[in-house]
């Protein structure tokens, strides 16, 4: 059975960037969210295996989503993909439970290496 994937980014281009480099095994069951509120609504109502999450977004940002996931006790593997590459931010998202931090624009080999590291592919 294919894994369910959620991509959350306010940029259409950034969502497409992730979509086009997802391995085949992850690209069959993909949903999209344009901000943190939409992402949390999906996560609260459906079982999602993997979340690719931007940080700088309107309404509710990526940090808000990570906090929401933690508070609700939702089980999902989160990979943060962000342009906010400050070390303090990278540490913060990992402390909040993200599996990895990937800098934008995300590259195929970098994504694959993280997915392998976490036994997803």
């Amino acid at each position: 059975m294919s894994l369910s994937v959620l991509i959350c980014d306010d940029s259409n281009m950034a969502r497409k960037q992730v979509l086009r480099i997802l391995p085949e095994s992850l690209s069959e069951n993909v949903q999209l969210a344009t901000n943190g509120v939409e992402a949390l609504e999906i996560l609260n109502n459906q079982a999602i295996d993997m979340l690719f999450l931007d940080l700088t977004m309107p309404v509710v940002d990526g940090i808000g989503v990570l906090q929401g996931i933690k508070e609700a006790g939702i089980t999902v593997k989160v990979f943060v993909i962000s342009a906010d590459i400050q070390p303090e931010m990278q540490n913060k998202v990992l402390e909040l439970g993200a599996k990895a931090f990937l800098r934008k624009p995300v590259q195929l080999d970098v994504l694959n290496s993280h997915l392998k590291e976490h036994g997803i592919i």
């Binding site: 306010d10 940029s11 281009m13 950034a14 700088t56 977004m57 309107p58 962000s82 342009a83 906010d84 590459i85 400050q86 070390p87 303090e88 931010m89 800098r103 934008k104 624009p105």
Partner: peptide, 27 residues
């Protein structure tokens, strides 16, 4: 906007390292 986001992220990282602090970013 996405090109600007990436540039803003790297500029804030430089600023954070230069000032040895954290820079909060908005959209």
């Amino acid at each position: 906007q996405e090109i600007i986001n990436v540039a803003m992220g790297q500029a804030s990282d430089q600023l954070a390292r230069y000032l040895d602090t954290f820079v909060y970013l908005k959209v």
